[in-house]
Structure formats: structure tokens, C-alpha cells
Simulated assay, not measured.
Amino acid sequence: MRLATPIASVLALLLAGCATGAGSMQSSVDALMRDYTGDVPGAAVLVLREGQPLLRRGYGLADMDAGIPVTPATNFRLASVSKQFTAAAIVLLAQDGKLSLDDPVRKWLPSLPEVADPITLRHLLTHSSGLVDYEDLMAPDAVAQVHDIDVLHLLEREHRLYFAPGSDYRYSNGAYALLALIVGKASGRGFASFLHQRIFEPLGMAHTVAYESGISTVANRAYGHSLVDGQWQRTDQSSTSAVLGDGGIYSSIDDLSKWDAALYDDRLLSDASRADAFALHTPIHDEADVDGYGYGWRIHGEVLWHSGETIGGRNVIVRWPKRHFTVVVLTNRNDPEPYRLALKIADLYLPDSPPR
């Protein structure tokens, strides 16, 4: 019998140790995800280090009615995780010279009332516009879905602001609906088309889409669910689910791995544009785990993150850019919010407790 060489023996032991470690790590994540396992609304989890997936896994069901399981290719409605794409579209157009972040919003949307005169695109990006929440302007019993243009029409009739633009922070879905309309005006094509041609297609995000009913489709779609009287019920759409700029993008963890990779180099945004997008523009003093807001990103220490909340779905992406480490958790259930879960998953791989 031929004995293995010392080098081969060491290599075999190292490989075996890596396999054992990976298996143990997956088991630890599986334990954290046990409530998403089985015949229940599920989740997709992605852990990336240096662009490589350390974990890429689906749990539970994407479609309870049809019994279809969640896979890494399942597309979830990202809800407010969509805002980073809306922001990137605006920044891309600024790079192209088609607009300036310091443009007044009324340059592009002149039907807004005069009270909006001081608001710039940068204010919209950073939730410092003072715009009144469009959701509060809708009829309480509204059933028909509103779209981005309907958000504009609601705000056209509102002659007050919460505060002087640039003087404070208030999270604004309406601001991002307006940004989507501005992308359309500045680019000469629809918002969904611009995202496809300038972001999704170049990055190989083949199944990511800003979904428009009757125009586009969502492949491998996860449907939202809510727990009602102890039973899971499909609750996939609400009256605001068709607004694209603030939350209408569907994507998978496989496609989001490509998005994450593009945030480290200049294939999409220049170094200067990325630095600007990831900078703390609006301080936030009354929210845990948030120091301030950039362009479509919450900022806390070295961490960039954003959550997404929609009827029947909760999502989060958490990035440690200096460590080239990212955790994504996408779910198709109304509760719980997965940010803390993502941090627990990160702790398994970053035992030195990354600053947050």
C-alpha cells in the first residue's frame, strides 16, 4: 500500500476540517432558521465573504398554495430594500450629466406646489425633504392600487411640509416614488426599463424586475403571507404594492450577490459616487442601530444596511464593506423583522463581533 505523503496528508486534513466547519456553520444557521422550515412561509439566506457564498440556502415555502419551496433563485418583493436601486438610478443619471443631485424637485416635477420649491433631489434621497407621507393622504378605505404617478397627484394637493427641507429627518416613501418618476423624465424611458437596461442586465441580474402588473412577470415568485388567528393566509398585495420607486423590485439572493459585488468597484457607480451614496448625509438620533442615512442605505458605524417591510414580507441586507462581508435574509411572511436574525447569522461567521 502506498502511503500518502506528509503534504497530501496535511492537505486532506485541511479540506476535511473546512468541510466539517462549513457543515457545522450551516447547522448553526439552520437552527436559527428553524421557524422558517417546513410547510410554512419561508426565507432565503445568503452569506458572502469576498464575493464568495459561504451560505446560500432556502427554507420553507415560496408558495403555500402550490407547495413550492424557497430556493436561492426564488424572487421576493424587496419592499424598501428597493430604495438602494432607485438611488443608484438617480446617481447614474447624475454621472451621465442628465441631472444634478442639487436640482430642485420642481425642475422635474413642476406640478408640485410652491411649498416644494426648496426641496432638492438630494433631500429626496436622504429623507430630509419634509414631504408629507403620501400614505396618510390616501382614503382610509382605499382598495385600488396606487402607482408612482398617483403619489405625485396626492402630493400636488398638499401645501404643507413637516419641516424645512434639509433641517431634519423623516423617512419618506413618497420621496422615492418621486425619484422614480424623475428617473423616467431624465432618462426618457420608464423607471422599470431604465433599471433593466442600466443596472439589472449589465450586472447579470437576469430575473430581477421592477414589477408592473400586466407588463412584466416575476419568475420563481414568492407570495406574501400573514399569520391570522394561528393560520397562514396569503396577503401578497396591498393598495401601495404597485408603487415602484419605494419598494416594487423583486429579486433573489442569487441576483443580489451580483448587486453586492458591483458595490465594491466602478462597473456601475464611480468611486466618488459610491463614496457619496454610502456617506452619512442625514443624522438620525432616535432609531437604534442607525447613525444616519445615505442614498438608499442606513448607516451604523462601518455597517450599511436596509430593511424592507411589505404586506406578507420582511427583508434585510446588511453589509460590512471593510470586511467584504454581507448577509441577506429575504422572507415571505409578515413577521418577524429579520434584521436581528441577520446579525445573529453574521456573528457565527464574524466571532469578533463586528462594530454595529
Rank of each mutant, 00 (worst) to 15 (best):
I199H: 03
Y171I: 05
R314M: 13
P202T: 04
A73F: 00
F194A: 04
Y293F: 15
A186R: 08
L99P: 06
R198P: 00
A277N: 11
L268Y: 10
A12Q: 11
T71H: 03
D35T: 14
L125C: 13
H300S: 15
L269P: 07
D335I: 12
A139F: 07
Y211L: 08
I182N: 10
L155V: 02
D141Y: 01
L14C: 13
S216L: 05
P165H: 08
A177D: 05
A19N: 01
E135P: 07
L78Y: 02
H159C: 09
L179Y: 09
L268E: 09
P338D: 03
P118H: 08
A116Q: 09
D103A: 11
E135G: 11
N334L: 12
L330G: 07
I149R: 11
S111F: 01
L330Y: 09
G313W: 03
E212A: 06
L54D: 00
L125M: 14
T235N: 12
L78M: 09
F278N: 06
Q84R: 14
Q237M: 06
H207M: 07
D150M: 02
S251A: 13
L92M: 15
L155K: 04
A222M: 05
D352P: 00
P336Q: 06
R267Q: 14
D254W: 01
Y59G: 09
T310D: 15
A94I: 09
D96R: 15
V70A: 01
D291F: 00
M64W: 00
W259T: 08
L11C: 12
Q95I: 09
P72E: 06
L13Y: 04
R356T: 07
L3R: 14
V40K: 10
D63I: 00
K258R: 14
T326E: 12
D136H: 11
H153M: 10
M25N: 08
S27M: 11
H285L: 15
G38Q: 04
R57W: 00
A4I: 12
D254V: 05
S24T: 12
P336A: 06
L124V: 12
S167R: 14
R157C: 02
Y134S: 05
